[in-house]
């Protein structure tokens, strides 16, 4: 495993575009999740109120709520990870190095293991960065800093990492399927930003669709990944929210992780290079 990760590291350590985008992603993640207080202050100054509440008094960084809040908003940037992952895999096709790797003595399953471990590692780093960032923000702003409150709700960090991993694997599979970065990025964007949301909206709101079919969208990959961490903001106007990770939703996402890995492996086995 370490050998496989080392091979990936040797391949990508001097690939500047890759690292620039990745560090921009981490930077966005940190800046965006840290800027909540400033945004709320800004609303204050503009006189925008939510219900009866003064925005700057909303305790968005209080433990344990902070975990759901930052992981939900950090999820907005997952498309950058998709972009990174697609470049990461399609390069191997456009340079035909995947073929050379196999000729040189990497088995196809080792090739896939190396790639997926590397993606996993990136997702892990993202999650750790977000956790540390959340911890610092909480320690600065939270009204409670007792240990039991800090660790309450950390399952949202796990869910964030899993959702990001599943999302990246979807992008990986699309890259494997189309082999070229341009086509893959465009088709991935069309599917994830337009096609699936469009069908989801129709299914959920059309009067002619009901019962099981209205819930069908829960099984779509993007929807399933996004469902894992629900929007926490309505709780600040005293609405009911899902402030936990649902077992069923978790199972669907884990199912997709397995499906994407299996489908990528199938493509790799089946194809001639």
């Amino acid at each position: 495993m370490l050998r496989l990760l080392r091979i990936e590291w040797l391949k990508y350590r001097h690939f500047k575009l890759f690292w620039i985008i990745y560090f921009l992603y981490l930077l966005f993640l940190v800046i965006f999740t840290s800027s909540g207080v400033f945004v709320l202050d800004f609303f204050d100054q503009k006189g925008i109120n939510f219900g009866e509440l003064k925005p700057s008094l909303i305790p968005i960084y209080d433990f344990p709520d902070i975990w759901q809040n930052i992981t939900y908003f950090a999820g907005f940037f997952q498309f950058i990870m998709a972009f990174i992952v697609i470049i990461f895999i399609t390069n191997e096709f456009s340079y035909r190095t995947i073929r050379q790797n196999v000729i040189d003595g990497l088995s196809k399953s080792q090739f896939l293991t190396a790639k997926i471990s590397f993606i996993f590692l990136l997702c892990l780093i993202n999650t750790i960065v977000l956790s540390i960032n959340g911890l610092i923000l909480g320690l600065i702003y939270s009204s409670v800093t007792e240990f039991r409150f800090i660790i309450e709700g950390v399952e949202f960090l796990f869910a964030f990492g899993l959702a990001l991993f599943a999302y990246s694997l979807f992008a990986f599979f699309v890259g494997m399927l189309f082999k070229r970065s341009g086509v893959s990025i465009i088709l991935f964007a069309i599917y994830s930003l337009f096609a699936e949301p469009f069908i989801t909206v129709i299914l959920q709101n059309h009067s002619g669709v009901s019962g099981f079919y209205a819930r069908l969208s829960d099984f779509f990959p993007m929807e399933a990944i996004n469902n894992l961490i629900q929007n926490p903001l309505p709780r600040y106007i005293l609405r009911e929210i899902q402030n936990y990770i649902s077992g069923g939703e978790l199972a669907i996402v884990i199912g997709y992780v397995i499906v994407f890995i299996w489908a990528s492996f199938y493509l790799l086995k089946k194809r001639d290079f």
Binding site: K11, N91, R96, T97, V102, I103, G105
Partner: peptide, 15 residues
């Protein structure tokens, strides 16, 4: 076995 074989197929493929 492929690890111990040296092989070039068609054009050279490198990063």
């Amino acid at each position: 076995i492929r690890q111990k074989i040296g092989a070039i197929l068609e054009s050279p493929c490198f990063y």
